[in-house]
């Protein structure tokens, strides 16, 4: 399910309340350098509805991508879904540091996995170069 990033909060609330997908299993990022976009994909599942137990709904939205990323300061940002699906808290933190997607309204947007002294662009972007020996 693809949405605009402005509507994602309403759509997520609808999915949770009406479609009964009650938790997020993962938050993934996909980098599209040619179309200058970053896609954020939420994989949603359900614990409460037994017939939905094997289903996964993916909710995707696309954000503008900067050539020179400056995580937290640039246009690559969207509303956090943490108030709707509580479990996305750590996934969004990971997505923030791996793709530079800033989640507005996230209560704890700190570094999660990367080294403390990381001073490079977010490492899962396509234009990241490894340094080698």
């Amino acid at each position: 399910m693809n949405t605009k990033k402005e509507d994602i909060l309403d759509i997520a609330a609808y999915i949770r309340d009406e479609l009964k997908f009650d938790h997020a299993e993962s938050v993934a990022g996909v980098d599209y350098p040619s179309s200058k976009e970053i896609e954020v994909v939420y994989h949603l599942g359900s614990y409460t509805e037994p017939q939905l137990a094997k289903q996964i709904l993916s909710l995707a939205t696309r954000l503008p991508r900067e050539d020179v990323p400056n995580p937290g300061e640039d246009r690559t940002r969207m509303t956090s879904l943490r108030d709707i699906f509580y479990s996305v808290e750590f996934h969004e933190r990971e997505c923030f540091e791996m793709f530079g997607v800033y989640f507005e309204g996230h209560p704890d947007n700190r570094r999660l996995l990367l080294p403390e002294d990381w001073a490079d662009i977010p490492p899962l972007r396509k234009d990241f170069k490894i340094k080698g020996r």
């Binding site: 990367l114 080294p115 490492p123 490894i130 080698g132 020996r133």
Partner: peptide, 12 residues
């Protein structure tokens, strides 16, 4: 060896 986060050898 081509991961962003793995040291290419500890002898450095």
């Amino acid at each position: 060896f081509d991961s962003y986060n793995v040291l290419p050898g500890i002898d450095g």
